[in-house]
Write a protein that binds this DNA or RNA. Structure first.
Lengths: 143, 143
DNA sequence: TGAAAAGTTTAGCCATTGCTAAACTTAACT
DNA sequence: AGTTAAGTTTAGCAATGGCTAAACTTTTCA
């Protein structure tokens, strides 16, 4: 049943990188969404974030505190959410990666819906080298 | 600085799927590694798993309990780790996905090292549709 | 065989990311 | 202005996946 014996592909470094990524992934998802809300509506409010993420209000509040600590977000009590310069930079970078991956999948012939979903999962795990190759494949620079 | 206003790409369903994936990802990484160890050395022992994953022994023990509960692994105290049929199936499927993704990246022209790392991060987030497209692109069936 | 080494398990701790329910602020509407 | 509705925050709980240290088995080898 098993294929021919193979070397274990998983090495501690790769595994740990993947684990560590998860926390920054989350931060990036929040920050990107906040950026989108600001661009869309002119402001980002806790409730909107909660609804878009499918998460409770209280969870957003807690997460925002972490993001403030990390210097990505600023906020005064009961006021709307703002991004720091660093926050914007992170959001822009996330959008860039996302767009490259999604476009690449579409170019590969993936359906729009699947491309959207897969790129969401994938965008945080692609190296710059791979992003470059994807852009090359699409035959255009997206950024 | 921001690109033109855009619709928020992130929808609650996609976000939640990504979150939910993380727990099965972990399970799959453990199970795949156990399968590799069995194929390589004829048996899988806790310490090897811990070393390969860069994680403490106790963490492996705890995780194995979860995997037993999920019906992927069987184990008697102080004995080595075995996979159930379901465990093997999961491992095989993980290997399949991994191989497709890694091969695809190599075909794209990515360096071996980067392909290995990126495919590790990506493999859990690609739909069957995308896997099929990747296989098509490589011009061969890998499984 | 019996002591030391190697490996495994248990116990108890911590951080993260969720949740609900209750308290508090701000905004909105008579 | 005062009441209600909407939005935000706090408090306290739960599950996950880590950790160390100490206890316990098994294996190895003098």
């Amino acid at each position: 049943m098993a294929t021919a014996p193979r070397k274990a592909k998983l090495q501690s470094a790769a595994f740990q990188r993947t684990r560590a990524d998860h926390s920054s992934e989350l931060a990036e998802d929040y920050v990107e969404l906040i950026a989108d809300l600001i661009d869309e509506k002119g402001e980002a409010r806790g409730t909107d974030v909660a609804v878009r993420l499918g998460v409770a209000n209280a969870t957003v509040v807690k997460m925002l505190k972490k993001l403030v600590e990390r210097g990505l977000v600023t906020q005064e009590p009961y006021r709307d959410i703002m991004l720091t310069g660093e926050g914007w930079a992170l959001a822009e970078n996330g959008r860039r990666r996302h767009d490259i991956v999604e476009n690449f999948l579409l170019t590969l012939g993936i359906s729009a819906e699947t491309a959207r979903i897969d790129s969401e999962g994938i965008e945080h795990h692609v190296s710059e080298e791979t992003l470059k190759a994807m852009q090359r494949y699409c035959g255009r620079k997206l950024t």
